[in-house]
Amino acid sequence: MRLHLAVFACGLRRYSTYRAATFAGLVTNSVFGLINATILLAVFAARPEVNGYDATDAVTQVFLAQALLAPVAAFGPPLGLGERVRSGEVAVDLLRPAHLAPWWLAHDLGRSAFSLLFRSLPTFAVGALVFTLRLPQGPAHWGMAAVSVALAMLVGFALRYLYALAGFWLLDTRGVNTAAALLGSFCSGLLLPLAFFPDLLGSSLRLLPWASMVQVPADVFLGKEGVLGGPLGGLALQAAWAAALLWLCAALTARATRRVVVQGG
């Protein structure tokens, strides 16, 4: 546990040195938030409500999605593990007296924690300055929203870890990463809130793991019914996906590492 705390702290410190990049990312997230919010506001100029969403809900979700983009990395960047498999550096990772998956989980949570503080909060604040946003009511609701964001970070890590594990079989994960970016933006509610999708498509996508990174946290934050009824249902769905995917990570790591061939020379 102490080891993983140290790795977590390293991840946090590593990303805290990229200050200009953090600021640049924050500006980009805010610009995209403003653009997407304006497009949706133009829709609400024509009608007051879309599938239970009003203009405030939609704009809040847009900025939540932009704020969550960095910590959950739904759109990338991929985990460094994939590149280390291709270059062979993963051999060093495997020599360490620590399991591969928890090591990378601790490292990635360090990264997410840093971006949560220095990218998510400022991005959301920009949205709150420009538009009226809907905030959770009362400490219990805030607590559930916080747990939901934490679970989204776990799901985001597990998915990227699984994409990187594919590298043990494919060697080159660029194709997987491009497909992952597509799924991560379209199916998560990042590109457009799933409430705007055709009913059947929207409610089916809500059940898939990608929605647990953006759409389900947004449902919890906004206090929407979601697909499993209320914020508790949303949290249960996220927890189930996080548990299932992390189990899969552990199980597949054992099979994947058996395929490693270290070339001498």
Partner: peptide
């Protein structure tokens, strides 16, 4: 690899196009 990457890029463009159609299914005019 080239073929799958090209296909994935095309699908990303198509998904943005789909979003435009979804938006217009709710608002007739912007």
């Amino acid at each position: 690899s080239l073929l799958t990457l090209s296909l994935a890029q095309a699908l990303i463009s198509l998904s943005e196009l789909a979003a435009l159609f979804f938006v217009f299914s709710h608002a007739g005019r912007l």
